[in-house]
Computed example of a mutant assay.
Amino acid sequence: MSQTLEAQQRVPDAMAGLRLDQAAAELFADFSRERLKGWIKAGALTVDGTPARPRDKVYGGERLQLQAELEDDARFEPEAIPLDVVFEDDEVLVIDKPAGLVVHPAAGNPDGTLLNALLHHCPALAAVPRAGIVHRLDKDTSGLMVVAKTLMAQTSLVEQLQARSVSREYDAVSVGVMTAGGTLDAPIGRHPRDRKRQAVNASGKPAVTHYRVVERFRAHTHVRCRLETGRTHQIRVHLAHLRYPLVGDPVYGGRLKLPRGGGEALKALLREFPRQALHARKLAFVHPGSGETLTFRAPLPDDILLLLDYLRDDVETLR
């Protein structure tokens, strides 16, 4: 079974000088660069109506048109993994992802992922690229994600993400006491020495995070972050760059810091906190079919609630 995919994008001036396959990978983010390269070679992805080569340069202003047949993706097996479904209709699915669940299969996680769970929950998603996944959360970040159930819905949601019109808010617990909130506009790219990490990097992609203080503790802060962009590890990288890394972050958290004079129970919890304290609390987007703006909220999970309770008790104990 296959579906005909039709989509088009205009190359922005900022992409001038990129290879066609690089620009296509940015503009048609649902598909891998290798898949797009194959479509370019087959003439299914054209530039101003003319076939081109993957290595050809773009100059800005060109119209990229994609017309391709999408076969059902049979590489991944459906798995009966429970999903916390917040909302579902014929076009979109909103879930509250638990910490510990990988979103997409990869070399280290070939199965047991959200994608496998989605294929079991809705077998028709096999005909949608990446089973409808249009954005990701890190394995150990909990909270809201939207999934497209049709190609039309997927195209709409990707366009909204590219236009920065999808509203995404996160709750985080950081190490250190913030004096005030603010906005960090700092590009993010690969770390120059550790390719598995991201870093604030002048040659990286634009990244903007707005953050504000929800509650201060003796040595930590409950922070609320709103994303304008969606770079890999964005909140984790940006807060670490500000010297307020997330509690429990194994990659960007640095050396463990325990509050002086704190109780042993709090210290034990901080030592053993199993993940970065980050939760996608709010998600808003325009419904691809109705045009209505939908807003969803997910309550804090038990582990972060427990951490906040311990931090409040620590403040009260030492008053």
Rank of each mutant, 00 (worst) to 15 (best):
A127G: 15
R10P: 03
G261V: 00
R231E: 08
R260H: 00
H104E: 04
A172Q: 10
P259A: 01
Q162K: 15
S174C: 15
E34N: 14
T150D: 10
L307E: 11
A265Y: 00
V223N: 03
A202I: 11
V47E: 00
H233S: 05
S142V: 05
F296H: 11
S156W: 04
A172W: 02
R63P: 00
M145G: 00
V147W: 00
G230P: 07
Q9S: 14
G263D: 01
S167G: 07
A44D: 13
G38R: 12
F28Q: 10
A99M: 09
G100P: 06
E91T: 12
A153E: 04
L70A: 05
A240F: 08
T50S: 14
P206G: 07
V175T: 15
P192A: 13
R164Y: 08
L266I: 00
N201L: 02
G49A: 09
D309C: 09
P129F: 08
V86Y: 03
V251P: 07
A186R: 08
T50K: 15
E26F: 07
T50P: 04
F273N: 03
D309K: 04
A186L: 10
P288D: 11
P187H: 06
L161S: 06
R271D: 01
R255Q: 15
R19C: 14
A52S: 12
G254W: 03
L311M: 06
V286C: 12
S2N: 06
H233E: 02
S156Y: 10
R212V: 14
T4P: 07
V58P: 03
V208R: 09
I188C: 04
A44Y: 05
L269W: 02
K282L: 08
V85E: 09
K37H: 01
T50A: 10
A277C: 13
R255K: 15
D309Q: 11
G143K: 09
R35E: 15
T183M: 15
R281H: 04
D140A: 09
V166S: 04
R216T: 13
A127S: 14
E316T: 14
V223Y: 01
